[in-house]
């Protein structure tokens, strides 16, 4: 049984159809890339998957549970973690508090399994080399550091499915490598990742499968190698070849 099944998902906002009959599934332990031009509905799809937008039609299942009408907070408790495009951290809080607030929001049973919460906070910041800034406000970090903090915080919160929205946007090449390593670590732990990216080499390197979204529809779905040379992908990104 797939971990995530999305079936005939549609969304209409202000009389405009943003998602059209989107159907796909993601297996446990898979890393799936979601690509497509700007405005194709990638982030909107993530917003629907994490419960911030209610689909007009269709259903979402996490394992065998129908989560289509479940609230975002409840989805997080069921194991869906989200990394936002514009650094989803709390800038007025210290780095320590940013991690702490994520761990404290976990269901009680899960929190108990973590052991000493202070050690987990320290371990999380150590993992991305930010422990020396533990007491600083998160707003004082660089974009790359904010991204690492957000990813590390989400990874440590024991989720099953990770929705990463452009995790390398605004991040230096060195940190992009770090992000790739963190995702590889997740894969090794058997976690499932759905990732939006514009960086095709990065996607090819880390993903098992890539889906291409265009005008709210899944137009391609396959292995990175197959997708990379597909004519349709070239058309979506660069337009149709007039000489063809």
């Amino acid at each position: 049984m797939p971990l995530l099944s999305v079936s005939h998902l549609s969304l209409t906002l202000n009389a405009q159809q943003i998602l059209k009959n989107v159907t796909f599934s993601v297996d446990q332990g898979e890393v799936v890339g979601l690509i497509g031009p700007n405005g194709s509905g990638k982030t909107t799809l993530f917003n629907v998957l994490s419960g911030f937008l209610k689909p007009t039609d269709g259903s979402i299942h996490l394992r065998d549970a129908d989560i289509t009408s479940v609230s975002p907070a409840q989805r997080a408790k069921l194991g869906i973690g989200r990394v936002f495009q514009n650094f989803g951290i709390f800038r007025e809080m210290t780095l320590e508090e940013n991690v702490l607030v994520a761990l404290e929001a976990l269901p009680k049973e899960q929190r108990m399994l973590l052991g000493n919460i202070k050690d987990v906070v320290k371990g999380t910041l150590d993992m991305v080399g930010l422990s020396q800034h533990a007491k600083k406000k998160a707003g004082s970090l660089s974009g790359g550091q904010m991204r690492l903090l957000e990813i590390a915080r989400t990874l440590k919160s024991g989720k099953e499915l990770f929705l990463l929205d452009e995790p390398t946007a605004g991040v230096s090449p060195k940190m992009t490598k770090q992000v790739a390593e963190l995702i590889a670590e997740l894969k090794k732990e058997g976690k499932t990742v759905l990732i939006i990216e514009h960086d095709l080499p990065f996607i090819s390197q880390i993903c098992d499968r890539v889906m291409v979204l265009d005008l709210g529809e899944v137009v391609l779905n396959g292995k990175p190698k197959e997708i990379k040379h597909d004519k349709k992908l070239q058309e979506i990104y660069f337009g149709a070849d007039p000489t063809a």
């Binding site: 994490s50 907070a73 997080a76 007025e92 607030v101 929001a105 976990l106 269901p107």
Partner: peptide
């Protein structure tokens, strides 16, 4: 207190962590 502050700063980010508004 921390969760309330998180909600105040950004509702969506807080909810995505599982914070119950």
């Amino acid at each position: 207190g921390r969760q309330l502050q998180a909600l105040a700063e950004h509702e969506w980010y807080a909810k995505a962590l599982g914070i119950n508004r």
